[in-house]
């Protein structure tokens, strides 16, 4: 039966049959570089594509006017036709009325963006990434792969019978294990992950205006609404009471992060007089580098500078900036940042 049915299928599809004969050696002739689309894959795949359909005609384009059409309407559309209001509260996965994902524009949590492709991001991908790979790459010829690294936790010396079955000793200097540096390949070239901008406002306890000014400046220079942090403990020396607002901070990712770092390295840092750069000792030895700017420098951010009179000059805060990279040690993170134009001085510590 099946063998009889096949020819009839071919007769009903003359076009495909001809296509099939145009590629007599489907399997043997195909090369990766000469892939001509779906027609080559199989005769069963429909070669027609929605991309080949011609667009709307000229008359249709000329007559298309959504504003005029909405004005022609006698009565307004029922709002249920075009308005969707997501539920105000999430009532669990079994509730019939589920909120849309935060990426949907109708969601209450939707944040628009990105709005552009930042220059620093493009430069990283076109120039820095491949240079960093060349600089950090360690070649292991076949047969000379490094063996497993030694044990990271120390063992007990066995001088006491109570050492038996004890968990291994933590590393010297503290309980935390440092991150391992994996060999750098094209998959794990260090890149920027996020930037924290943070400002502790000392006077916030006595006068909350300082906190408001700090929040506005933070929002102006980073393009992100600042979060207010509250004191965790009561510290009399710092004039802190537990639960009182004491600082503002911002976490930058993606487009905002690249724009902020480019602004800092190209506009703000060159204007600082006698600027040495960032201390080579900065960093948490896990690939995160931090530095600070005083109130004078914060005042030179272009967004603050054009409107400097609007801020009370005594309330302009100092900020701390922490750049988190995907590098696992400070040496690599420093190399990444210095390729992006951040200067370092002094002895470089890991």
């Amino acid at each position: 039966m099946a063998s009889q049915r096949v020819p009839s299928v071919f007769q009903s599809l003359p076009l495909r049959k001809r296509d099939f004969h145009n590629f007599p050696c489907l399997c043997s002739c195909r090369k990766a570089s000469t892939f001509n689309g779906m027609t080559e894959l199989s005769e069963d795949v429909d070669p027609s594509s929605s991309m080949q359909i011609p667009g709307p005609s000229e008359e249709h384009l000329a007559s298309f006017d959504p504003i005029a059409r909405s004005k022609r309407r006698k009565r307004p559309l029922p709002s249920s036709r075009y308005k969707f209001r997501p539920p105000k509260y999430y009532r669990g996965p079994l509730h019939p009325h589920q909120p849309p994902p935060p990426t949907a524009p109708e969601s209450r949590e939707f944040i628009p963006g990105p709005f552009s492709l930042p220059r620093l991001q493009q430069t990283y991908h076109s120039t820095f990434a491949s240079d960093l790979l060349t600089l950090m790459y360690t070649h292991h010829p076949p047969g000379t792969l490094p063996g497993p690294s030694g044990p990271r936790l120390r063992s007990w010396d066995g001088s006491s019978p109570y050492h038996k079955n004890r968990p291994l000793r933590p590393p010297r200097g503290g309980p935390a294990l440092p991150l391992l540096r994996r060999p750098i390949t094209f998959r794990n070239i260090p890149r920027l992950e996020k930037i924290h901008v943070h400002s502790f406002v000392k006077e916030a306890g006595s006068d909350s205006a300082h906190l408001h000014v700090a929040g506005m400046i933070m929002q102006a220079i980073t393009n992100v609404r600042a979060t207010v942090f509250r004191a965790k403990h009561t510290i009399a020396n710092f004039n802190l009471r537990k639960g009182s607002p004491c600082s503002v901070g911002v976490e930058l990712r993606g487009e905002d992060m690249y724009n902020f770092l480019a602004k800092v390295t190209e506009v703000v840092m060159p204007r600082i007089k006698d600027y040495q750069g960032i201390s080579g000792k900065s960093g948490d030895s896990n690939g995160d580098i931090g530095w600070g700017f005083g109130p004078d420098t914060v005042g030179t951010f272009p967004e603050v500078e054009i409107n400097y009179d609007a801020y009370p000059s005594k309330m302009i805060p100092a900020v701390h900036i922490v750049v988190c990279t995907t590098a696992t040690n400070d040496k690599d993170a420093r190399l990444l940042l210095s390729s992006m134009g951040v200067p370092f001085y002094g002895k470089h510590m890991n």
């Binding site: 524009p105 628009p112 963006g113 990105p114 709005f115 552009s116 492709l117």
Partner: peptide, 8 residues
């Protein structure tokens, strides 16, 4: 990008 800017 223009769509996102107008949404914003």
């Amino acid at each position: 990008f223009l769509y996102q800017r107008r949404l914003n």
